[in-house]
Design a binder for these strands. Structure first.
Lengths: 269, 269
DNA sequence: ACCATAGGTTCATATAATGAACCAGAAACA
DNA sequence: TGTTTCTGGTTCATTATATGAACCTATGGT
């Protein structure tokens, strides 16, 4: 591991629950020598990536990251990133792919992509609002949401959009357990008749589910083979999108595709 | 300069107008050997600070900065605090207010607020870099900076952004004296034509000028009455923001609004 | 007074960074 | 079409840089 990689890896020891890290702590966490950490942190501090503060001269993340983040957001807006991922996802599955973000307590569609292969397809509208209990995207988010949000949703009136919408809170809780095991949510005609969809959550930098991407197909076309392909693809692309947006899946999120990060001359996903 | 510092300095060649940088360009810009840049960029890429994209395999800022920025923001909600102050400042003056922070030897904009009152207004961009000698914010910071920084800035080439930019070091030094007397800096079309701005420094816990807030108005609208209102407001809000961020103005900072509250609860430092 | 911990510093050693030269491929140009 | 001149990427002997055990000083706890 190069010196620079070591220095940058130190930044990963700052978390939401541990915003301040002292020199000795950092040495312990990283397994590096204290003197090494001291010098690396010094260089990071000079560049504004960390700063020292407080009585114990502890370190925290510095202002430079804010500036870079502003530039990154300008260079790579979230919608464009998502659009690229959805393009690949709909190409891979030959079905409609869409991306939705939590806004308050509702999930609203940001962008989507159609596959030109089939004459029939599930169609979407911008800013569609998805019900949390009745869509695969909603369930994917719920499965990784704080218990109080889940409770609030399941206690509230659960509207049945179709005669196949699942409205039994106990049943939904069992589904959430299943989703946490697989990493993929599923909904069969729960929101619109004759639509079968699979979704996987998108996580933010604090590993909170901030949204989901989903693949929606006509039930008539769904079979075991297609479902299997979709499940793999939607999960892989969700992880990719999470990474591209600077998010981090929670440690317990199931990964069946260990994305071995090769050097920087890399395989296009 | 350490290897890590070199690697991190490469990130500064990404700007709003140059979001993509190729390997050779980066080597030219930084003055480093191409092979060196190649390896450093490789390490940065592995850590997610940059990523390669496009036909020319050019680099751009990576998702990692978004993640770190979210953590920084969580640890130091400076942006939120500043946003509130700027809101009040722009309401009080009915003009554009902005907040910039020193990063190394440059001043970069963190956040800003517009007033909805007038149809015309000065507009800002996130991560705008302000020249120290040619903006009111820069002058406000310089006036309270260490002599060696002032010397370094005034010795260096002083770019004239407009035909009204003041580039005479002696003249600037006289202005700095004036700023120290008033506590407020002023710039008339020094950075952008037809923009008249007033600024006051923000101090950190060690009473060093870490940034500034400013009010920028179209020159057409500026008159004695507006200028007087702005000077009072920007200074008061700068003191308030300094306090909210845990900073402390130096003892010689002029205060014309003595907020000596004769209560029995002592002012929080 | 004592021990354990902290941040910070030193210097001989070893490891990692460096850069000139070199590929191979893609445009630009004639 | 061949030639030039870019590009990103690679090699390897040389050199400079990073490293870590030990040390220093201060502080908080017992």
């Amino acid at each position: 591991m190069g010196t620079t990689a070591k220095a940058l890896s130190l930044l990963n020891y700052f978390t939401r629950s541990r915003p301040l890290v002292g020199l000795s702590d950092m040495a312990r966490l990283s397994g590096l020598n204290k003197a090494t950490v001291y010098r690396l942190m010094g260089e990071l501090a000079e560049a504004g990536f960390v700063e020292q503060v407080g009585t114990g001269r502890e370190y925290r993340l510095g202002p430079a990251v804010m500036r870079l983040a502003a530039l990154r957001e300008h260079a790579v807006p979230m919608r464009d990133v998502a659009a690229e991922v959805l393009r690949d996802l709909s190409d891979a599955t030959q079905e409609t792919a869409h991306f939705s973000l939590m806004q308050g307590r509702t999930l609203s569609t940001v962008t989507y992509a159609y596959s030109p292969v089939h004459g029939t397809r599930v169609t979407m509208e911008d800013a569609d609002v998805l019900m949390l209990h009745a869509t695969s995207s909603g369930l994917a988010v719920l499965a990784y949401s704080a218990p109080d949000l889940v409770g609030a949703v399941l206690e509230g009136p659960l509207e049945a959009r179709t005669d196949q919408t699942i409205t039994d809170p106990a049943h939904i809780r069992r589904m959430l357990d299943e989703i946490r095991r697989d990493g993929v949510a599923e909904s069969v005609s729960g929101f619109e008749n004759d639509v079968h969809s699979h979704a996987a959550p998108i996580f933010d930098a604090e590993s909170r589910a901030m949204g989901a991407i989903a693949v929606a197909a006509p039930t008539a076309r769904m079979d075991a083979a297609l479902a299997a392909r979709i499940r793999v693809a939607v999960k892989a692309q969700a992880l990719r999108l999470t990474r591209m947006l600077g998010g981090l899946p929670p440690p317990d999120y199931p990964r069946n595709t260990p994305d071995t990060v090769a050097g920087h001359a890399p395989a296009p996903a």
